[in-house]
């Protein structure tokens, strides 16, 4: 037995980190390609909103000219960024929840016996989830193009960094929630207590000035909602502009959520909870 084999060097080279990250993203992308149902359902949700809700709602809600728009726009055009962010919100919640709970437990074991630092593995997992959500958003944009929701061509490029940042923020939020809040055991709970409030108390479906007219309190909530800022970041970026306030909020929240998630993450929760009787303990 070689003695050096028993005292591996401390730490890891940048190349090892890079290969690990690449491997995690590569696997997530492969799974995404293989799981067509997941892809289709991720697309159907925003398309239902777009094709049915927006079409029906178009006449009810007039949208005045507000930045970044320079002309009157159709309601469908207004809600498109909100739906893009919604795709990322669902993706973030789903992938983070499945990370902690049952379905991916086996895969989490595979991931966590990697010798690389755990914070790095979790961040890589976040990046991988974000990549998948960005792919989903572009697929949505492609379909929306044929529905006459067309941004300036350069917007499809400038929206990319915004999508990456918002995807990271929402993925980290999902991870933080699933680590920190014990009551949210299933997706229905997350829908009711996280996704719906975040989505409806945001600028996804209506401009905030209209909310302000109706309810100043709700307006404050919407303003404080990081999801609002994710939407606005994406909305402005889609038109080649930067909403600095939103960028600051989303950036700050991303860092805070990632730190919180790494700190709070406990891989044991999923399987300890599932076997309270200790049948296999």
């Amino acid at each position: 037995m070689r003695p050096d084999a028993l005292t591996p060097r401390r730490g890891f080279s940048p190349a090892e980190y890079a290969r690990c990250l690449h491997g995690i993203v590569w696997r997530e992308a492969l799974r995404f390609v293989h799981q067509r149902e997941r892809f289709v359902s991720a697309l159907v949700r925003p398309l239902v909103w777009l094709f049915i809700f927006a079409a029906g709602f178009r006449q009810v809600l007039g949208v005045s000219i507000i930045p970044p728009y320079e002309t009157y726009i159709l309601y469908e055009v207004y809600i498109a960024p909100g739906l893009m962010a919604m795709i990322q919100l669902f993706n973030g919640m789903q992938s983070s929840l499945s990370m902690v709970y049952d379905r991916e437990m086996g895969n989490m074991r595979t991931l966590l016996v990697s010798p690389l630092p755990r914070w790095f593995l979790l961040c890589s997992k976040l990046v991988a989830g974000t990549v998948v959500s960005v792919l989903q958003v572009y697929a949505f944009l492609a379909i929306a193009w044929f529905w006459d929701i067309q941004a300036p061509p350069v917007g499809y490029l400038t929206v990319l960094p915004a999508l990456i940042l918002s995807g990271l923020m929402l993925g980290a939020l999902g991870m933080l929630i699933s680590s920190a809040v014990r009551q949210l055991e299933n997706f229905a709970g997350v829908m009711n207590f996280v996704i719906f409030p975040m989505f409806f108390a945001s600028s996804a479906l209506y401009p905030l000035w209209r909310v302000q007219e109706g309810s100043p309190i709700l307006y404050r909530f919407c303003e404080l909602n990081p999801f609002t800022h994710a939407i606005e970041l994406v909305r402005f970026a889609l038109y080649g502009q930067v909403n600095w306030t939103s960028l600051a909020v989303v950036g700050g929240c991303t860092v805070a959520f990632i730190l919180g998630a790494v700190f709070a993450y406990d891989p044991a929760r999923g399987f300890v909870r599932r076997r309270p009787t200790g049948a296999e303990a």
Partner: peptide, 25 residues
């Protein structure tokens, strides 16, 4: 581990490559 921890959707080699990447190979 006692429960299966392979990725059923991926190929045999892909499963191995994933593990190798996790070790920085």
């Amino acid at each position: 581990f006692q429960p299966r921890t392979l990725d059923l959707e991926l190929s045999v080699t892909q499963n191995l490559l994933y593990h190798a990447a996790l070790h920085g190979m």
